[in-house]
Design a protein around this nucleic acid. Structure first.
Lengths: 380, 380
DNA sequence: CAGTGCTCCGTGAACGCTCACGGGAACGTT
DNA sequence: AACGTTCCCGTGAGCGTTCACGGAGCACTG
C-alpha cells in the first residue's frame, strides 16, 4: 500500500503533486472484532459470506425474551400497549442479539416506502448535482427515498443499469441515451420520466430544455457583439441523429437565421469534460477557421476550451469570445467569468419528480419544458 | 382447472386495471376487508374485485391468463421450464394488466438486495459529489444500491434523516454532526461508518482526514513563503469542542509550533459557502489584523474570501495569500488557481464502503485515515 | 408393453412481519 | 358479588413472491 515507509515532507509532496495522479494515501488500522458472532462450528479465520447464518427474526427475540412476536413488535415500534418494563427488557434482548427488523417483511404488510430511482451519467459532472438536489428535495417532500445510479457516461453500461433499476425501484427519473435501456424501463410499466433526451420516444414522458430558444439567444448575442465566425464544440458522446432538437442542429439553424457561414464544418466534436473542450479548441485553432467566437455544448467544454485558448496566449474575449450552456456555478468563478445559457437544473429535477408523481396517480403528464436564460459575463 | 369458469380476457382486464396500476403506493391503511377473492364454495361466478385499489398480484395475472402463479413467475423471470408460447401469452397478459412484481415480496424470499444509505450535507457543496462518486462505484462493485439522503447542512434535520435511514437501509455511510442522530443509527446495530467527524464516539467506526499533518504542511508552506500574520476562516456550522482534532485547533497548534502570533482572535467564523467566505474576509479586513495570508476551512470559503479580497483591489498573492482545504476541482479553475490541501474524496467514499462491507461480515474495522497533500498554486 | 427420460406445469410451504381480534389479570364501580 | 374498564399480552391470518417437490403427458427405448 505504501510506496515508502517514511512519509513525504510537505515540500516534497507539494512538488510531486501537480504532476502525479492520486496515490494510495490510505491508512487502515485494524482493530479487534467487536463482537464474535456465535461461532457456528468450524469457524477458523475470517468467516466468508457464503456461510450465511440464518437471519435473526422477531421470533428469535420473542423466544429469547420469553414473550410473543407481537410484544417484540410493540417494543421496537414504540407502540403504547406494552408495559414499560417489558419494553426495556425486550429492547435489551433485541439489541444484544443484534436483531434488526427486515425491511422487506415490513414493506410487505405495512405502508410501502416508495423508492425513486435516479439515473445520471456522472456525479462528477457538475451539471448533475443540481438536478440531484432538486430531485432529492422534491422526493423528500413526498416521503420518498431516492436511489442514485450512475452510468459513468458509458453508453454500454446503460442497459445494465436499466435492468437493475427495473427490479429495484418503484419509479424512475433518468438521463439515458441508449434506446434499448429506455425501452427496458418503459416496458416495465413503472412511472418514468426521461430527461434531456432529444430523441425521446413519444410514449415516454419527459423533461427537456428549450435550446431552440436558447441557441437563438446565444447566437443572437454573439452576432450583436459583431461576431460572424462562430464555431461550436459539440458533445461527441451523444448520438447525433442530427435531424432535430440537438444543440448541434439548433446551433446550425440559429446560425443560418443570422446568415452566418457556419455549417457542419464549424461544429467540432469534443469529449464531455474540461480536457475534451481543450482538445477540441486545438482542433478549432488548427483548422484555420479563424473563429472569433466559440460556443460550447456545455460549460465544461466551453471552459476547457477557453482555458486552452488563454494558455495559447489568446485574449478573451478580444481574440475569441466564449459562450457555454447550462449555467453551472463554476461558470461564474472561472476567469473570465463565462457567458452561458443558464438552465434551472434544480427545477428540472423537481419537475421530473412532479411528473412521476402524476403518473402514479394515473394522470398522464406529457412533457416539461425549461427555458434557458442567457447570462452575459466577461467572456463575450 | 379453474374453479370459476370464465377468466377475464386480457383486454377487459386491461381496461379495468388501468386506474389502479399503482395501488402499491396508493394503498389505504384500513384493511378491514382483507380479501374478497377465494370465495369459499358457493361460487356465483367471478366477482369483480374492483371495489378498492388493490395491488395487482401474480395471482391476478395467473387467473387472468389461466395458469398458475408459478408459471407466471417463470415467464416473468425468464426461467427455462416453460413453453415459449405460454410465456408470450402470460407476458402479454401481465403487461396489459400493468403487473409489476413487488420488490418486497421478492426480497422476502429471494436473495436480498443490500441498500446502502449515504447521508451527506448537501449535494450542491462540491465536496460531496466526489465522495458520492466513490461510494457509488464501490457499492456498485458489490452489487449494492445506494440511497442518498441530504440533511441540507441543517443540524436540526439530522435526527429526522437518521430516523428514516434506520428504517429503510441495511447499512450506512454518513456525514453527521448531531450526536443524537449518530447515536440513533449506531444503536440500530446496522453497519455504520461516520465520516469526517472529529468528535466521533470511539465505538463508532469512521473515516477521517489527517488534518494534523495537513495543517502543518499548509502553515509550514506559508511560513516558508515569509508569512507570519496568518488568519483562518473557520466553518461556523460545526460544533467547536475546540479541544482536539478540529481544523480550528490544529491550525492554532501548527501556528504555535512556528511561533506565530496566531491565537483565537485570528480565527474567524464563516458560513460554509462562497458568500460565507466573502463575508468573513470582510471581518478579517475590518479587524485590522493586517493578515498577509488567509487559510480557509475549505476551498469554498477560501475562494469566496479570495474573490472578495480581489474585488477590494488587493493583489493575490502579493497583498494576501490564500490557502484552502479539500482540493476541489474548482480550486484549479479559479483565478488565481488556489493552493489547497488536496484530499482524495473519492477514496474516502470507497474506503467507507469497504469498512461497511467489513462490518457486514462481522469483522471489526476501526478507522480509515486519509492524508491530504498540499498542492501549491498561484494563490500563495 | 412396461420402463425411462424429458418437458411443462401446479401445489404447499416458507420468508418475517404487522393487523385484527380475543383473553386474562387487576382494578374500580354498581 | 357481579359487572364494566383498563392494561397487557398472545394467536391466527395474511401480505406477494419464490423454492422444492411432485405429477401429468408424451416420446423414445429395450
Amino acid at each position: 500500500m505504501f510506496p515508502c515507509g517514511v512519509p513525504l515532507t510537505p515540500v516534497a509532496a507539494a512538488v510531486m503533486i501537480e504532476e502525479e495522479r492520486y496515490g494510495e494515501h490510505l491508512r487502515e488500522r485494524s482493530r479487534v472484532p467487536r463482537r464474535t458472532t456465535s461461532d457456528g462450528g468450524r469457524g477458523v479465520g475470517p468467516v466468508p459470506t457464503s456461510a450465511r447464518p440464518r437471519r435473526i427474526t422477531i421470533e428469535d427475540v420473542a423466544r429469547s425474551a420469553g414473550v410473543s412476536r407481537q410484544t417484540v413488535s410493540r417494543a421496537v415500534n414504540d407502540k403504547p400497549e406494552i408495559d414499560p418494563a417489558t419494553r426495556q427488557r425486550v429492547l435489551r434482548v433485541a439489541q444484544s442479539m443484534g436483531y434488526r427488523p427486515s425491511r422487506f417483511a415490513r414493506g410487505m404488510v405495512g405502508p410501502r416506502l416508495t423508492t425513486l430511482g435516479l439515473v445520471i451519467a456522472d456525479v462528477l459532472n457538475p451539471f448533475f448535482p443540481e438536478v440531484v438536489s432538486g430531485v432529492l428535495a422534491a422526493a423528500d417532500e413526498r416521503g420518498w427515498q431516492v436511489a442514485v445510479y450512475s452510468t459513468g457516461s458509458a453508453l454500454e453500461r446503460e442497459t445494465a443499469v436499466a435492468r437493475t433499476v427495473v427490479d429495484h425501484v418503484d419509479a424512475c427519473v433518468a438521463f439515458l441515451l441508449d434506446p434499448g435501456a429506455i425501452e427496458l424501463i418503459h416496458r416495465s410499466g413503472m412511472p418514468f420520466v426521461l430527461l434531456d433526451n432529444e430523441h425521446r420516444p413519444p410514449s415516454v414522458n419527459g423533461g427537456r430544455i428549450d435550446f431552440a430558444t436558447g441557441m437563438r439567444q446565444a447566437v443572437g448575442h454573439l452576432v450583436e457583439r459583431g461576431h460572424r465566425r462562430i464555431a461550436m464544440l459539440d458533445d461527441r458522446g451523444r448520438p447525433d441523429a442530427g435531424d432535430h432538437g440537438t444543440r448541434h442542429s439548433l446551433f446550425l439553424r440559429a446560425a443560418a437565421e443570422h446568415g452566418l457561414p457556419a455549417d457542419e464544418d464549424w461544429v467540432f466534436p469534443a469529449a464531455n469534460s474540461l480536457e475534451g473542450g481543450a482538445a477540441a479548441m486545438d482542433d478549432v485553432l488548427a483548422g484555420g477557421f479563424a473563429a472569433t467566437a466559440v460556443l460550447g455544448y456545455n460549460d465544461l467544454i466551453a471552459i476547457g476550451a477557453m482555458r486552452r485558448a488563454r494558455d495559447r496566449g489568446m485574449r478573451v474575449p478580444e481574440d475569441c469570445a466564449f459562450v457555454g450552456c447550462d449555467g453551472l456555478t463554476l461558470s461564474r468563478l472561472v476567469d473570465p467569468p463565462l457567458t452561458t445559457l443558464t438552465v434551472d437544473k434544480e427545477l428540472l429535477g423537481r419537475a421530473a419528480v412532479r411528473q412521476v408523481a402524476a403518473q402514479m396517480t394515473g394522470a398522464g403528464t406529457g412533457e416539461t419544458v425549461i427555458v434557458p436564460r442567457l447570462v452575459v459575463r466577461a467572456s463575450s
